[in-house]
């Protein structure tokens, strides 16, 4: 639910690059032009919708071209140096026969669904996608999504493509190679992306508000700022360069490092948990709020009670020193 909304929102706000949030519409190739900032990924497939889900919040898509043969060529232009994941769908407009195949790129033995490129062109060759449900490789939960991503070897063709071997992907929380939007959370045999009620609670996603990844009391479906950093979700805000005039008290580094188990090394989260980098101002004010709150049904409301006022200030100072922002004020570190 939240991921779909978040992406749709990002594409509405993004504007510059073409995004296709719908389950079947295609993007005209003219808008998806190669520029100095992009590279092309091409290959051939049976008649197919090709989508790339990228970490800049965008979904890029194209349709393979009917050329009279069984192997339809396609070319999709993607931004350089942005992590993307490819998903290919045959019979995309036929609800009952749609077959979704996530792609896993492998290179010299290493493989991942997430990849980046610094270069110009990647050729995937022919990809043997299945065109009906009975031919699928494996679909135990019968949602029309292949149970594991199809490996495509690019060792020979793409020297400047990096497959992402970091092991956490915020778009694939259970780490099974199927991005969350193509999971079937409620087991109704319709993957989340095509499902108007992902969690099956009877409340349509657009009105549903039951996942709140930043714990701010506003569910993600209404919350346009899931990570509370003062910018709309999917933003690519640069984190400031540090504020060396903020002195970190003795022990600040060690105290701050105790946040990293859940919020990522140096506060850079690799999951939907809020990152702390660039949030120096919020850290102090939110931790104080949680320290004195009586809401006991939240881990951070307990954890905050484990720290003294001066320890909270030391943690905030550490983040301000490292990433900039004001440690003491109730301000968002990336306001500036």
């Amino acid at each position: 639910m939240n991921i779909k909304i978040r992406l749709a929102l990002a594409s509405m706000l993004g504007g510059m690059l073409v995004a296709c949030g719908g389950g079947g519409a295609s993007t005209s190739s003219g808008e998806n032009a190669v520029t100095a900032m992009t590279y092309s990924i091409s290959g051939s497939v049976p008649g197919t919708l090709i989508e790339a889900f990228c970490s800049n919040g965008q979904i890029y898509s194209t349709q393979s071209e009917h050329n009279g043969t069984a192997q339809h060529p396609f070319t999709l232009n993607l931004p350089r140096n942005v992590k993307c994941r490819l998903v290919m769908t045959t019979n995309e407009n036929d609800f009952a026969n749609r077959v979704v195949t996530p792609i896993r790129l492998t290179k010299n033995g290493a493989g991942s669904i997430a990849f980046t490129s610094t270069g110009s062109a990647v050729s995937l060759g022919y990809i043997d996608l299945k065109t009906n449900r009975s031919a699928m490789r494996a679909d135990a939960n019968q949602d029309g999504v292949e149970d594991s991503a199809l490996a495509v070897d690019i060792s020979l063709s793409a020297s400047d493509v990096g497959v992402d071997t970091a092991f956490a992907d915020p778009m694939d929380v259970d780490r099974d190679g199927i991005i969350d939007t193509y999971e079937d959370d409620d087991g109704d045999r319709v993957p989340n992306r095509h499902d108007d009620d992902d969690d099956g609670d009877g409340i349509p996603d657009l009105a549903d508000n039951d996942f709140d990844s930043d714990y701010d009391g506003t569910g993600d479906d209404e919350d346009s700022d899931d990570d509370n950093d003062g910018h709309y979700d999917g933003d690519s805000t640069q984190i400031g360069g540090g504020n060396s005039s903020v002195i970190v008290p003795d022990g600040g580094r060690l105290l701050a490092a105790q946040c990293f188990q859940c919020h990522g090394t140096e506060g850079r989260s690799v999951s939907r948990i809020e990152g702390l980098a660039g949030e120096a101002g919020e850290i102090a004010s939110e931790m104080r709020e949680m320290k004195y709150s009586t809401n006991l049904n939240d881990i951070m409301h307990h954890q905050a009670k484990g720290y003294t006022e001066s320890e909270i200030d030391a943690i905030a100072a550490y983040f301000a020193n490292k990433y900039g922002g004001v440690a003491g004020g109730g301000h968002d570190g990336d306001d500036d």
């Binding site: 092991f167 999951s271 939907r272």
Partner: peptide, 21 residues
């Protein structure tokens, strides 16, 4: 809750990354 089930993966992914990456 279901929400905790989702957060379990978010938590584990950051812990795994903070340990091994």
């Amino acid at each position: 809750s279901r929400q905790n089930y989702q957060r379990m993966f978010d938590w584990a992914n950051n812990l795994f990354a903070d340990t091994f990456a």
